[in-house]
């Protein structure tokens, strides 16, 4: 399998996204915003449609749309006094409706669209991989540097706000990270399953982890393992890669949920 260029590229892209998606998803899950990835995914869909219509790179337009959508959700949530899930619903449905309208006016309700909805990791090019590697590295570095602040804001947002921690800016950072992750993961698992890759490894890790830090690290390991194992299985069993990766992640949840929770090392 490794002698094939397209599989090497796929495994590399899968590995990066497999680590990044749960690392970002961790902060969403801890804030009970698991579905934000999905909401952003729907806006990204509108972005893809706009790209097809305007004949520019759909990944780029999806990235722009996802960032705008992520920031909009965050702004509605924090400033508008709209409840989180209502803000999400608003952006979610506006995104998908705009996407449908744009796509049909581009006359592109066909195979081309499918690869964004369900992923097309086997068609990743060197140029795609470079983009995924650069943005992925920036995302992971941001999380590495700001981990303590992002985690602290989850622990006690109000207390941190009183002490002058720039909570709004940290929240927007998470929203932008989520948006970039969605746009990058689109090629790997598809818009419909992006959020699964951000969320499933985290809740799987949560079954056995003993702290925030261990949850984060374990979820990244599970994401990486799911991406590599899923791709390998899909190659030999001739299954769709995106769906297989997500099923492996879901399977890891089942296995870990059955395992006895580990205790903190005494």
């Amino acid at each position: 399998m490794l002698e094939l260029e397209f599989m090497r590229l796929a495994l590399a892209a899968g590995a990066i996204v497999g680590v990044l998606a749960p690392a970002v998803g961790f902060f969403l899950v801890q804030r009970r915003q698991s579905l934000i990835g999905d909401g952003i995914g729907h806006v990204a869909f509108a972005g893809v449609a706009a790209g097809i219509l305007l004949d520019v790179s759909p990944v780029l337009t999806a990235l722009v749309a996802a960032v705008l959508g992520g920031v909009a959700i965050e702004a509605l949530r924090s400033r508008g006094g709209t409840a989180g899930d209502q803000a999400l619903a608003l952006v979610f449905y506006t995104g998908i409706a705009a996407g449908v309208v744009l796509v049909s006016s581009a006359g592109a309700l066909d195979v081309g669209l499918f690869q964004y909805l369900f992923g097309s990791i086997l068609t990743v090019t060197r140029g795609d991989l470079l983009l995924i590697a650069i943005l992925g590295a920036i995302g992971l570095a941001t999380i590495g540097l700001l981990y303590r602040a992002l985690a602290g804001a989850i622990v006690d947002e109000e207390g941190a706000r009183v002490a002058g921690v720039p909570i709004e800016r940290l929240n927007v950072t998470v929203a932008v990270l989520a948006a970039v992750t969605v746009a990058l993961s689109m090629r790997v698992v598809g818009i419909l399953l992006v959020a699964a890759l951000m969320v499933l490894p985290v809740i799987a890790a949560g079954r056995v982890a003993w702290s925030m830090r261990s949850t984060l690290l374990l979820s990244m390991a599970i994401g990486l393992g799911s991406a590599l194992a899923g791709l390998t299985i899909s190659y030999y069993a001739d299954l769709p890669p995106g769906g297989t990766i997500v099923l492996v992640a879901a399977g890891s949840f089942a296995v870990l949920a059955a395992a006895r929770p580990l205790r903190a090392p005494a």
Partner: peptide, 9 residues
């Protein structure tokens, strides 16, 4: 209380 479902120590 802990924000969300954080498994914090």
């Amino acid at each position: 209380e802990l924000g969300g479902d954080a498994p914090a120590t």
